[in-house]
């Protein structure tokens, strides 16, 4: 009897529970548990053991030292600042470049739209590292690209400002440039998704009521695409702030970004608690704006 009752419950509700539960179980096992391990590690004590941390000894339960160093040591604060500034600038440029592209995508015929959307995604088909190396080649002192920029610069400015080459490699400029190039599709796609949903008759209505096309954009298109701007902005900002590969390859080693710090603490320094504390701090830094946004988003949804 109980067997058949379970069977009945399973037939009615079990499948949907399984379907809804699967992603949660996945996130629990592969994200939440590892994250809790990192959190635990961040309050452990660094010891010359394997693995290189332990609980007990000098700080029997909780060792706050890694966190206090994150908040007081200039190295970490500067790295956070560099990361946030680089990621923010990259996000702004992605927005300025991506918005017209996304808007253009909504205004062309369906055939062109599919081709252009393909082109947006096309760079993903080649290796990410290969693309970064290509930029390193372009930015290097002896490249034709750098030569072209140098010649134009020397042509336009007084002799005393002339340069042998434009210093691009190993600067924050290079980091931002490559991040914009890499993350642009993550800005274009959510923007396109939100712009594509807009009703073109609203543009006509605004025009009909006396607005010129640029006023229509400010009054009607832009305010309605804010959710797309926020989504695209977060998709660019969050991974860009934690970026490791791009700053290591093209960035300024004297101004490391936070990803590099985490790698160095885990690797060379073998200070796992310190690395974990930085990682947890980074996550908190990223989660707060996301939570604020989804709070307002949910509030706006409830009003509908």
């Amino acid at each position: 009897m109980s067997q058949s009752r379970f069977q009945r419950w399973f037939d009615l509700k079990g499948w949907s529970a399984l379907l809804i539960g699967a992603p949660y179980i996945w996130l629990l096992v592969w994200f939440l548990l590892p994250f809790l391990i990192v959190v635990a590690m961040s309050v452990a004590t660094n010891t010359p053991t394997a693995p290189p941390f332990s609980f007990g000894g000098e700080h029997p339960w909780v060792n706050w030292e890694p966190f206090s160093r994150v908040l007081t040591d200039g190295l970490y604060l500067r790295a956070f600042l560099t990361s946030v500034v680089n990621a923010f600038v990259a996000m702004i440029f992605c927005l300025l470049l991506g918005y017209p592209m996304a808007l253009g995508l909504t205004r062309v015929s369906t055939n062109w739209r599919n081709i252009l959307l393909m082109l947006v995604i096309l760079p993903f088909w080649t290796s990410f590292l290969l693309r970064v190396y290509a930029w390193m080649g372009l930015m290097g002192k002896n490249s034709w690209f750098n030569g072209l920029l140098t010649d134009s610069w020397n042509f336009l400015v007084p002799m005393s400002w002339a340069m042998k080459s434009v210093p691009m490699m190993h600067t924050n400029f290079a980091v931002v440039l490559v991040m914009v190039y890499t993350y642009l599709p993550f800005m274009i796609l959510p923007l396109y998704a939100s712009l594509e949903r807009l009703d073109p008759t609203l543009d006509e209505a605004a025009m009909d009521l006396g607005s010129r096309p640029y006023q229509v954009f400010w009054d009607v298109t832009l305010p309605q695409s804010i959710p797309g701007i926020v989504a695209g902005g977060m998709l660019v900002f969050i991974p860009a702030a934690g970026e490791l590969v791009i700053p290591s390859l093209v960035g300024n080693a004297a101004q490391p970004m936070i990803g590099k710090i985490i790698q160095d603490e885990f690797g060379q320094a073998r200070d796992w608690p310190m690395a974990s504390a930085v990682a947890v701090a980074l996550l908190i830094l990223m989660v707060i704006p996301t939570m604020i946004y989804s709070h307002y988003q949910a509030k706006a949804e409830r009003l509908k």
Partner: peptide, 20 residues
Amino acid sequence: VPPWQRPVHMMFQSYALFPH
């Protein structure tokens, strides 16, 4: 004469009210 300069206004079938 472009739409924004015509003394003609339209009530759209879908009403086209600005949702924001």
